[in-house]
């Protein structure tokens, strides 16, 4: 069972990342994080941006761990899924860079 969970760990990580970003966005808007934290960036966007970068980094660490064992087909599928998780977290987080946060 552990091997199966390891195989899909990249996508589990994406699901966690996606949930964290969505929840944090809702929380930030509800708490009114709309002040400018740094020029051009609201508090909500800064928090989301930092979180997104940390999540991408965590995906990178996971991927490195997955790449250490590629002997079996399940492990190779796990690596591919690790890449997919990383790509999905990058793509689904892209709106943080460009779209208004709480409007």
């Amino acid at each position: 069972m552990t091997a199966l969970i390891k195989m899909v760990s990249g996508l589990i990580a994406w699901a966690v990342s996606f949930s964290v970003l969505y929840a944090l966005h809702g929380l930030g808007c509800a708490l009114g994080w709309t002040e400018q934290a740094v020029p051009g960036l609201t508090q909500a966007r800064v928090v989301l941006l930092v979180t997104w970068i940390l999540l991408i980094a965590a995906h990178g660490v996971l991927l490195v761990w997955l790449l250490r064992s590629c002997a079996t087909q399940m492990q190779r599928i796990g690596v591919a899924i690790g890449w997919i998780g990383l790509g999905a977290t990058i793509v689904t987080g892209l709106p943080i860079l460009a779209i208004s946060s709480c409007v």
Binding site: A15, F18, H25, V91, P95, I99, S100, V103
Partner: peptide
Amino acid sequence: SFGLWVHHMFTTGIPHMALGFFSAA
């Protein structure tokens, strides 16, 4: 497929950035 559900709710007034997350997914 668990990250798409809000695309059924694009007209409910959810903030644009959240719509962007679900649109991308």
